[in-house]
Nucleic acid binder design. Structure first.
Length: 261
DNA sequence: AAGTGGCTTCAGGTGTAGGT
DNA sequence: ACCTACACCTGAAGCCACTT
């Protein structure tokens, strides 16, 4: 039997010290689905959209990944889709390329460029298609397109089919930016391109790719500074605004602690 | 004090090869 | 036709040193 808890002197139940942002997001999501909590929350964050009966809500929202998977083996449809949404010079020059040439153009190497399947843009490699996309605007567009296939907002509420509220849950870390790795950052520096904020990619995903009008909110522990790209809400205010009658004992205690600490 | 960049670890997705 | 193991890549996040 392990005795970490005794040796460490950390005697609290886990919930009392938990600092996992996905756990916070899961609690928020759970509460949002109960009673009148959805309208309460939307009012708190100044949601400009009306909710109708088609509303739905998601955690770890990966719409493009799943829609891509749903297309199945239709390579032709996949290429037409990319050509329509990513309207760059190099993409239009790929019309007669083979499937493998198409994949190689975007630098897919996971583990190799497939000869059979048009691979997901989420697998494109920035460091490799750098060599194949000369124009800076095209390069940036290709990066954004790829990133849009990878981002997963923590919570998304579709207030109806064409409007959404996008929630990013944060415990300690701030807003991320792209590109993320050193070699990729070097490429951006060499090209003189600015880094792209996480919320910029989210806005691009919803507006330009999915055709969904959306607002964006960060839920954070402390600090209320909103930037032009998003507004922030405090966890304590979010939880204080939500009804939780009948919740399990630990959750009631946890919420009390979160609201009053 | 807050932000940035480099480094590390972890978890998960993807396609291939090789087995049954 | 399925399954499993495998290699490779990526993003998220934490930590630390450094800058502003």
């Amino acid at each position: 039997m392990g005795d970490f808890r005794e040796l460490s002197g950390v005697g609290e139940t886990y919930w009392a010290i938990n600092r996992e942002e996905r756990q916070y997001a899961a609690i928020l999501y759970h509460l949002l689905l109960n009673g009148d909590n959805l309208p309460r929350f939307l009012e708190l964050i100044d949601c400009p959209y009306k909710v109708d009966e088609t509303w739905s809500a998601y955690v770890e929202y990966a719409y493009l990944r799943d829609a891509w998977d749903k297309i199945g083996n239709d390579n032709d449809k996949k290429r037409k889709l990319i050509s329509a949404l990513l309207n760059t010079h190099d993409v239009s020059s790929l019309e007669s390329a083979s499937v493998q040439e198409w994949n190689e153009h975007f630098g897919v190497g996971t583990p190799v460029a497939s000869t059979a399947h048009v691979q997901s843009p989420s697998r494109w490699s920035l460091a490799k298609f750098d060599a194949n996309v000369a124009d800076n605007d095209d390069f940036l567009a290709t990066c954004q397109f790829k990133w849009a296939f990878n981002i997963k907002p923590d919570i998304v509420i579709h207030t109806d089919n064409d409007h959404a509220v996008v929630i990013e849950a944060k415990c300690t870390a701030g807003e991320g930016s792209y590109p993320s790795t050193t070699p990729e950052k070097d490429i951006f520096k060499r090209r003189g391109l600015p880094y792209v904020r996480q919320t910029d990619v989210q806005q691009y995903l919803f507006k330009e790719i999915l055709g969904i009008e959306a607002v964006f909110r960060y839920v954070v522990k402390a600090g209320t500074a909103s930037t032009p790209s998003y507004q922030t809400v405090l966890w304590k205010d979010a939880f204080a605004a939500l009804e939780h009658t009948g919740a399990p004992t630990f959750l009631t205690a946890w919420l009390r602690k979160l609201v009053h600490d």
